[in-house]
Amino acid sequence: MNNVVRNQKIAFACLSGLGLLTVLVLIFIIGYILSQGVSMINYEFLTSNPRKMGSEGGIFPAIVGTLYLVGTTMIIATPIGVGAAIYLNEYTARGKLTSMIRFATEALAGIPSIVFGLFGFAFFVILLEPITGGWSILSASLTGVTMVLPTIVRTSEEALKAVPDTLREGSLALGTTKWQTIKSLILPTAMPGIITGLILSIGRVVGETAAFLLTLGGTLLIPNSLLDGSRTLSLHLYMVAMETGAMDMAFGTAAVLIVLILIINLTATWLFRRLIKRFS
């Protein structure tokens, strides 16, 4: 019997150690990046143009590029993703068509980002060049849309499922059409959950590099339109680290990215808590 107790004690100690290790790894990564990079962050770093291939100066064009790319991607992906979730959850019963759509969504979620990059390169950058301007914010955004679609569809569907059917019945019984019910009752009720998914998608776009490496062009100039090439913070970090070899700039950019991701995650968590409260 003593052996059993001892084994359990050892096992539980090991498992607790793993739990602790996970948190420590996170703290170490974030702490390391911030300690190396946070001293770089100041007003000038954030608002001035890079000089000498990014080895000096600031990261302003990368900030602008990130905003452009996130904005364009989300403006296109949101209606498509939320629309698909509404269609799947409100308009069709489970059948062949829906299982095909669900399968495709799952498949999209599993495709590596570099493959999205290859596709975006062949389709948007080369084939559709007259429309997209080749390597451009538009090409990269359209590629980004296919990447974030699964996240948006899945989270929106969860949010719609959480709306009780009694509300749908109550509204339809008042003589409203299905779309009126969805538009003025179901969507507003599910909104916090949907927005959580959108924020997670923004995080994905901010953190993505491989796909944009092949579609965004990577110029350091500030873009004038969606048809111009650009570079995001992640792409900038990669390029200054691997090509320019300016490690202080790389750590500075990484620190900015970490702060951004922290903000995005905290917002998503906060919204998710609010969602749970609403239905309890």
Partner: peptide, 14 residues
């Protein structure tokens, strides 16, 4: 959750 959100380039730099 946060580990999942850290961009891969940041992991790379680390």
């Amino acid at each position: 959750e946060l580990l999942a959100g850290i961009p891969s380039v940041v992991y790379g730099l680390f």
